[in-house]
Amino acid sequence: MAKSKRLLDILMFVTAKKKFTAQEIADEFQISIRTVHRYIVDLCDIGLPIYAEQGRNGGYTVLTNSFLPPILFTEEEAVSIFFAFQSLKYYRSLPFDAEISSVEHKLYNSLQSEAKTRVDKIRSHIAFWNPKRTIDSPLLNEMLEYSIGNRDVHIQYESKTGIREKHIRPIGVYAHDGLWYLPAYDYDKKKILLFRVDRILSIISNEKSEAEFMSLEEWFDFHEVKKPIRLHVHLTMEGVRQCKSVPYFEGFVVTQADGTGYIDTIIDKGELSFITPLFLRLGRHARIIEPMELIDGLRKQAEEILTMYQD
């Protein structure tokens, strides 16, 4: 049997057992103890963390169970995974950033020369673009871990009204438009709010929580409307095009035969402050029919802009 095949078989054997002796490997693969020790050295050289215990009851322990045995990919699968990682490069902060870079490097180096040439050519003709942000989110990994670990967190948060201390229970993190967001239950306001991760200045403390909350996936699917209000907007063709490029509006836009369209749906009144700047940007391509509060908000912002440029 080829050495590489034997080494792979032993790798899968020891990662499954986690604790083993040289004699167990010798018996399993019908090889000598001396050969077993050479294979163990080879496994350590490729990065498998093995701890040797001396003595009568000694043996070996794999220090982590996160080391996966090799997986065989087709060339097309490897290329697709490589470019999936490429789609993340425009984000300033990423969870597991070092690990992603390491996997990308290993994956590229594992490709045959022809596949590497193909990847290099594809790089020149494809991009998964997101706005390049220069804002760091240094606490991104921690907030993700607290979400997974079911922990309550006390944070310092920089909002529009200043720096506040918040007591929250994170649900998860997600990326949008080059920024990272954290839906979390705010214990003071007794509801789920959306926080910008880059605006979390520090973590004051954290503790295990007994409370059960929805997952991030459930939060995406569920938006409780406590103060329902009708949003009715007429859109030009350009308004339709732009609204369909905004995830918040995409599912609400109805396109008519002539290319114009409209939005007619129920939203929560608390979202008006979020959507007002979006409609201000649309200008004449979106005519608000209701609610009046949104019209008033647009007028106020337009007047403030006009005041800045009066002679």
Rank of each mutant, 00 (worst) to 15 (best):
S245G: 09
K160L: 14
E218S: 11
Y157N: 00
K244Y: 05
C243R: 03
I126Q: 00
M143L: 11
Q156P: 05
Y174I: 10
T260I: 04
E238R: 01
N150S: 15
A211E: 08
P138I: 11
G162H: 03
I200S: 08
I192P: 11
E158Q: 05
I203E: 00
K227Y: 13
E224M: 15
V153N: 01
S202N: 12
Y174R: 04
L216E: 07
I200V: 13
N130I: 08
P247H: 04
R164D: 14
D198A: 06
I263Y: 04
M143R: 01
G172I: 14
W219C: 14
D136H: 05
K190G: 08
P170F: 09
I168D: 10
P183A: 06
M214C: 12
F213W: 03
S137L: 10
N150L: 12
R123G: 03
Q256G: 08
E207K: 03
K227H: 12
Y181C: 09
H234F: 08
I171T: 11
I155S: 02
S205G: 05
I122V: 05
I168W: 10
N206W: 14
V153L: 07
E207C: 12
I155G: 02
F213M: 02
S159C: 14
I263G: 02
P131Y: 06
Y262P: 07
V240K: 05
R199V: 12
M214A: 12
G162W: 02
Q242E: 13
I203T: 10
L194A: 04
S137D: 14
I168Y: 11
K121I: 01
L179E: 09
K132I: 14
P138L: 07
P247M: 01
F220V: 15
N206K: 10
S137Y: 07
N130S: 10
H234S: 07
N130K: 02
L144A: 13
G162I: 07
I203D: 07
R199G: 07
F220A: 09
G259S: 09
L140A: 01
G178N: 04
Y262G: 06
E165R: 11
P131I: 09
L140M: 05
E142S: 15
V233Q: 02
E250A: 08
P247Y: 05
W129R: 02
Y248E: 03
K227F: 13
Q242Y: 09
D177W: 01
G149W: 03
M237W: 07
Y181F: 12
R169N: 13
F128Y: 04
L216S: 06
L179K: 03
I229G: 09
C243S: 11
V225C: 08
G259E: 09
D177K: 00
R241D: 11
D120C: 01
R199L: 11
S205D: 06
R164A: 12
F222M: 12
K191D: 13
C243G: 09
E207P: 10
D120F: 02
S205A: 08
T134S: 09
V173H: 03
Y248Q: 03
Y262F: 15
E250T: 06
H176N: 08
A211M: 12
A257E: 10
R133F: 12
L231M: 07
L182R: 04
G178Q: 00
D188C: 06
S137C: 15
G178E: 01
N141Q: 15
V253I: 11
E145N: 05
Y174P: 15
Y248R: 00
G259P: 13
S205P: 09
M143Q: 12
T134G: 10
N141S: 13
L140K: 02
R241L: 10
